[in-house]
Amino acid sequence: MNEFTLTMAIRKRNEKGQSAFIPYMMAGDGGLDMLHERISFLEEAGADAIEIGIPFSDPVADGEVIQEAGSRALKRGVTLRKVMSELQAQLHSIPLVVMTYLNPVLAYGVSEFVEDCKRAGVKGLIIPDLPHEERGLLSDALIGKDIALVPLISLTSSLERIEKNARKAEGFVYAVTVNGITGVRSSFASDLMDHLTVLKGVSNVPVLAGFGISTPEQVRHFSSIADGVIVGSAIVTAFHEENLEKIQSLIEASRTAVSQ
């Protein structure tokens, strides 16, 4: 099988000796009519793919910042269905990765959701409450669609699980860099480097680090050891505060990192 478009986009960046940068934005925060404008901004600012978060009533994997952004979007009546319809209205060349909890997908209908993802140019899915064992729920519907079901692999995963998950990973491996939920962190576990090294050793796809990465220094640090970084809460905050320079500085930090 050919590589996923999402994987190729990351590799393209890595081939330049640089680390990939994937920002996360909450769809509908600030209004759904901002969606395309923000995607275009992130694309022009140099993102390699964009993670589009879908608001949910019970976001158990998210910290305060993303929970609040989700609540703002929910108050505006944003739903998975509305986001998918908006995405289909205007296509982008940058790969989009939809991050949603499982229940809205089940309510949508798995096959209908996958078809709409295909039409909207979605190249990857991240479903934080769908671990490896349960992925059969979606994986059949995704065959041949060039939509990668990106696995999260955590610090607490056993070596056996890491190998099992990483070998079958599609798109990229989302290496969760903290035990916990999304959000800003000031420190990371000391064995994180070993964890990332192990992951890179067993994975056939790029390994990106995410959760808790929020400052240019952290971006630079993780960019030097992983194939890319995912930044969520800091991007969400920057959009909310209309501080677009902050976003540019984060992306620049990833470009100036020297790989180790």
Binding site: A61, L102, L130, P131, E133, G136, I153, T156, S157, R161
Partner: peptide, 27 residues
């Protein structure tokens, strides 16, 4: 309607383990 998937802790089609990866080891 959910498809039956292989997974642990099923009661008919109900149950399963729909949690973040961080918890799978603990479970």
């Amino acid at each position: 309607m959910i498809q039956t998937v292989e997974g642990k802790g099923r009661y008919g089609r109900f149950g399963g383990q729909y949690v973040p990866e961080t918890l799978m080891g603990a479970l």
